[in-house]
Design a protein around this nucleic acid. Sequence first.
DNA 1: CAGTGGTCTAGACCACGCG
DNA 2: GCGTGGTCTAGACCACTGT
Lengths: 243, 243
Amino acid sequence: MSTRHHQVADDLRRRIRSGTGGFAAGDRLPSERELSSYYRVSVPTLRDALAVLQAEGLVEKAQGRGNFVREPAPRLGYPDGPHGDLQVTTSFAQVPPGAAVAAGLGLQPGTPVTEYVRIAFRGDVPHALTRLYLPYPVRELAGAGAVDSPWGDDILGQLPRRTGVSVAHATHQVTARFPTDAEAQSLRIAIRTPVLAIERRLFAADDRVVAHALITLPGDRACVAFTTGAPGADNHDQKGAAR
Amino acid sequence: MSTRHHQVADDLRRRIRSGTGGFAAGDRLPSERELSSYYRVSVPTLRDALAVLQAEGLVEKAQGRGNFVREPAPRLGYPDGPHGDLQVTTSFAQVPPGAAVAAGLGLQPGTPVTEYVRIAFRGDVPHALTRLYLPYPVRELAGAGAVDSPWGDDILGQLPRRTGVSVAHATHQVTARFPTDAEAQSLRIAIRTPVLAIERRLFAADDRVVAHALITLPGDRACVAFTTGAPGADNHDQKGAAR
DNA sequence: CAGTGGTCTAGACCACGCG
DNA sequence: GCGTGGTCTAGACCACTGT
């Protein structure tokens, strides 16, 4: 009762994991046409098998070059984890917020909203896409300082000094879905690679929402990690510390 | 530069959201063959479009019956959230743990390991699959008591009384991937629906791993939610995320 | 240029649900 | 029985990569 493409994926996974099939980290796999004829499946079915392995982080595709066995690299951790090796690019603009974002921020109509779009790279590979929305005009927060956090924490750190508002706590909502075309392009992932979509809301001490962020993490190279106290005891003492 | 199946998905999403297309919650969509001819795309391409909407929780497929507009229902929340409306089934067995699980538990060879497999239903619809591994023989923890938690917290609650070990904290690692065939069957989701895969480790006060759980949540009807303090405040004691 | 993956087409055959 | 979705096939054409 196993599907054909999972059978192929299982065999490839075994050969990659054991290395006995001649598939070592960094190697190029045979082309999809070769593999499909080897496994006696059609090319789309073989690509389904590769999509499974790709989502698991075992295989990496490169347009025009081939499929490669991924070097085992640690996944980028959210919300905490080492990111000293990340290069971060930021752009920002004053935007008419979409209805969802506006509702999330609880704004008066006409309030200027700034969107920061940030992409975090490890080497040449994008690992995170963050869209951070702040209910202030662009100029106030532009040129904020050293860019270091993939999630825009450096920008948030400017909030108290510039606006008198400070963030007391944050909520994070994580779902799994497919990327939009734009997200797939920014993150340079296949449109069939699942992503972790995070809605992050930042609250002031009086529980007003002071900022809102949409974060998209490629499912094959990032993971969300957090720590809680003992289960069952209603834990509101959670920490976003990874292990 | 948009792909064909995303164009179709965007149009269907708009018609569902606004209701103007005659697509209201609970309605059956036209068959895939009808929709594909309406949009002038092939059936596989139309199915790609539906897969996008399905992962977003807007559309539900039912084998032999059709595609339906989902009633807006709150997603099942992990690790906290209301689950009074869940029915939970449990089975357990003494199993030879896979290498990964054994490593996670740090066991001596020969230690008996019990696997609890639990499925949480809302009505007839599975919302969570939990596989909980405890390094004790089956009998010690069988018939544990009222079954109420989708994550097996009731079983974990028995640990201190029966073994003297108590859980001090837990780590959670969330990734996005495709379900295995077995997971898709248990959760009754399409094999192309992304899932949230959670590795949960439970630690005693001395940081030994005392239990290990693999939790699979269907991406279209569950979400992971947690709360942290102010960002950037004290994430310098962090450790890395895992591979 | 030749080879590769990215996307799409137009079918096929099967299993499931319902009348 | 008949319509539905589930899976797979065997191609097509394009864009991208490196020579």
